[in-house]
């Protein structure tokens, strides 16, 4: 249980997927102009990252059994593409409300490097995760992504009215803003999680 809590809080605050590991920057910059869309994207990514972590962990075990470890990248990306398509179909059939909310973001997630990234981090022998730890890592990575994109969207909405030099508009100022948010998150890396959680 302790290790799961450490993985969970570590992936959200200390090794945040966006701000510390640079995974999923494209949607982070692209879909953060409005708070609502940021929330939708965050939820969709969390959902897919959790599912993808669980499934790719099993698939990797299967690959290793047949000595096909070198095929991991190519297999994972196909599994993720199929998974995203599958999730989209199921949501459309059984949960139209959720599909309406997440619908347009789902196809974008296949090429989100946070998803393939978490699958590859989970199977890294030096981390040595088991199935539950891998799934928790995927879920926490998604929560960390959601937290970062929501914070960033809130800041960016206020930026709309800022008087900026022409050359700074758009991406340049968004990147500098992301740098400042990232500095704020650096503060968490000084935390000793074990002591903090009373473990």
């Amino acid at each position: 249980m302790t290790d799961l809590l450490l993985i969970f809080f570590g992936a959200i605050f200390i090794n945040n997927f966006v701000l510390a590991r640079f995974l999923g920057i494209c949607p982070f910059l692209g879909v953060s102009k409005k708070l609502e869309t940021a929330v939708g994207m965050g939820l969709a990514v969390t959902f897919v990252m959790t599912m993808a972590s669980a499934i790719t962990f099993g698939v990797n075990k299967l690959l290793l059994r047949f000595n096909l470890g070198y095929l991991d990248t190519i297999t994972f990306i196909l599994v993720i593409a199929v998974l995203v398509q599958f999730v989209e179909m199921i949501l459309r059939k059984y949960s139209p409300g959720l599909y309406q909310a997440l619908g347009i973001y789902l196809p974008l997630i296949t090429t989100n490097c946070a998803v393939l990234g978490v699958a590859l981090i989970n199977i890294d022998p030096s981390a040595g995760y088991n199935f539950i730890q891998a799934t928790v890592n995927g879920f926490a990575g998604g929560v960390g992504f959601t937290l970062a994109i929501i914070l960033f969207a809130g800041l960016r909405e206020r930026l709309e009215f800022a008087p900026l030099p022409k050359a700074m508009e758009g991406f340049p100022i968004a990147l500098i803003l992301a740098g400042l948010v990232s500095i704020a998150f650096l503060g968490f890396s000084g935390f000793r999680l074990q002591a903090l959680l009373g473990l």
Binding site: P165, F171, P172, A178, G179, S182, L186
Partner: peptide, 14 residues
């Protein structure tokens, strides 16, 4: 560190 990456790229882009 990560913040330096964001800020450098932002300034170079500008």
């Amino acid at each position: 560190l990560p913040p330096g990456a964001f800020i450098t790229l932002g300034l170079v882009l500008a």
